[in-house]
Design a protein around this nucleic acid. Sequence first.
DNA 1: TCATAGTAGATGAGAGTTCAATCATCGACT
DNA 2: AGTCGATGATTGAACTCTCATCTACTATGA
Lengths: 168, 168
Amino acid sequence: MTREPRWLDEEEQQTWLAFLGVTRRLDEALDRQLQRDAGMPHAYYMILVMLSAAPGRARRMTELAAATHSSPSRMSHAVTRLEAAGWVRRERCPSDRRGSIAVLTDAGFAVLAAAAPGHVEDVRANLFDQLTCEQVRQFGEICRVLLTHLDPHDDADPATPTAAAATR
Amino acid sequence: MTREPRWLDEEEQQTWLAFLGVTRRLDEALDRQLQRDAGMPHAYYMILVMLSAAPGRARRMTELAAATHSSPSRMSHAVTRLEAAGWVRRERCPSDRRGSIAVLTDAGFAVLAAAAPGHVEDVRANLFDQLTCEQVRQFGEICRVLLTHLDPHDDADPATPTAAAATR
DNA sequence: TCATAGTAGATGAGAGTTCAATCATCGACT
DNA sequence: AGTCGATGATTGAACTCTCATCTACTATGA
């Protein structure tokens, strides 16, 4: 019943700590940049990105939550905040009166357009520019393998509008 | 001055999104497991880990903040919470009266020992077990390269007590 | 038509993080 | 000793996230 756990060996531990360090620092860097240049955290920026890529720059709350992998509650709070900032507007859904639709405003699009170049630059500088072509390829493959296991339902289909234009 | 940003190409975008997906889901999984089994988030668990690996199971607040890469403020709030739970105790520093020392209590060590096996199992199941040996090696190398750039001061020296025993 | 189960979304409380003060002490210099 | 800038740590407010709860509506089925 209580058998000896498969502890990490020295090298695995080091890799694990390095990974934790990378993700934390990267998150911090992105949050700082976006907070400074766009006045919002990375998670909110991603909401605007997803909206900007959607037809009519509008999406149902549930869809939006799925696209950014956040809970309905979180999405609701987030959109409330984005609405207060004037970057998103809520509309009632005509086909299902329970539903509500988040629409990206012109102001929201503008703040996105203003912040995007700096954001991409940050992603490049901290990630892609540091790796060789071969490493970028390996890294992509590894992330896809891990994601498939962590979330079997997420197809990561490049054809979906959600996957497109994430950092554009 | 305002030159065209180096947008991510299709494959880079996909890799970037996959990476974001992996880190988010992994964080979620670890937080959920530790919240359930130990009643604390992953960040707090790491504080106990760092304390348990330190001589005398005790460390200065500033050191602790550096070891877990968190701000002094965050560490102070966290230790306040851990102290209320009875897992950590504060002592005044004899050599510098401004300082304060966090000490892991027996109860803290016990909760750590109880949660560790499940935690390691989670890390293995979601990360190492999903990759080939070759991929684990590549992944480790990539993380080290990125970490070196993101935080040049962090030596990631395996000999430091902080790096040892992170998941033990 | 009515009951009922399920779905979409909002809300409020509680926990964790950030940021900008604040306080006490140290170290160095006059 | 007395001043002054730097350092160690804490605090409170504002913000974000989670979780449980709640309301409104849809869909199904007698």
